[in-house]
Design a protein around this nucleic acid. Structure first.
Ligand code: FES
Ligand code: FES
Lengths: 141, 141
DNA sequence: ACATACCTGACCAAAATGGTCAAGTTTAGA
DNA sequence: TCTAAACTTGACCATTTTGGTCAGGTATGT
């Protein structure tokens, strides 16, 4: 049960972006240097964030990325969905009536994992980018 | 962010065991058949559960495994620890002052992941094997 | 025109996952 | 005493996921 670095980097990068995008777009190169994330990898991540309308891109010299929404309206849920960091606790297909192991009914632990999934998703839905910014004010450059 | 099948199977097997161990020890073969888990794999899992004193083994014909504690005293936390299903959300080493990416200070998202870890662990600490048994009474054979 | 920075997709090594296989040892019961 | 059931141990392995790199583009401000 661990977080992948794609999800982790996405949030790191967006926090960085949110801090610096007041005036100009922020280039991935800058984020890469400040946060220590490979540029090529960041491009993959931002491509997805863009498709999900969390950021906008501005091409050309002095270009970069800008938030597409208010930090208060960007929930962790949105970010995670965008980069395919899904919370998956059950083994079976949820829609199906069948259980894991191909059994005809849901297994004895199915409800448990489902509860856990809800529990974790609740956390993500209640956290916005704004919350993270406030949390780290004191370390602001 | 997903659960591994080792953790999932461990809980499944223990629920099965808790249901049937009233009179006699339960053999892994039976659990394997009822829950559709490979026997060889179950053996790996139960070896760990035994080391962590969650179950006791009884060798020989008619042998098997028995719970070593009251179902009410077996928390999911205990089970997960036993089979090395750890909740790991931060990237860095917790004890260290250093952050991930080898930086000198903790990264901007460190607190967030730490909160998440606590949030998930709380769930595991508040669930016991007993809770699962009650939940599934109606499907009892 | 040219440098900057976004964009796209193929590719890949290493680690984790989810097991299998083989060869035991122990003990109840016929 | 013999044997089969069931625990015990440890090596092994194919597949998938992870966490990227690399090699080319294309768009645009100056
Ligand atoms: S997890 Fe859904 S049936 Fe087992
Ligand atoms: S996760 Fe701990 S420093 Fe980044």
């Amino acid at each position: 049960m661990k977080l992948t670095s794609k999800g982790r980097y996405a949030v790191m990068a967006l926090v960085d972006l949110a801090r610096f995008d007041n005036i100009n777009p922020v280039s991935l190169r800058d984020i890469s240097l400040r946060q220590g994330i490979s540029l090529d990898y960041l491009e993959q991540i931002f491509s997805k964030l863009k498709k999900n309308e969390i950021v906008k891109s501005i091409r050309g010299t002095q270009g970069g990325y800008v938030l597409n929404k208010n930090p208060n309206d960007i929930k962790l849920t949105n970010i995670f969905n965008a980069v395919d960091e899904k919370v998956k606790t059950v083994q079976c297909k949820k829609e199906s009536k069948k259980g894991c192991n191909g059994k005809a009914t849901k297994c004895v632990t199915h409800n448990l994992w489902d509860e856990l999934e809800v529990h974790i998703n609740t956390f993500f839905e209640n956290k916005s980018l704004k919350d993270l910014l406030n949390n780290n004010k004191e370390t602001r450059v």
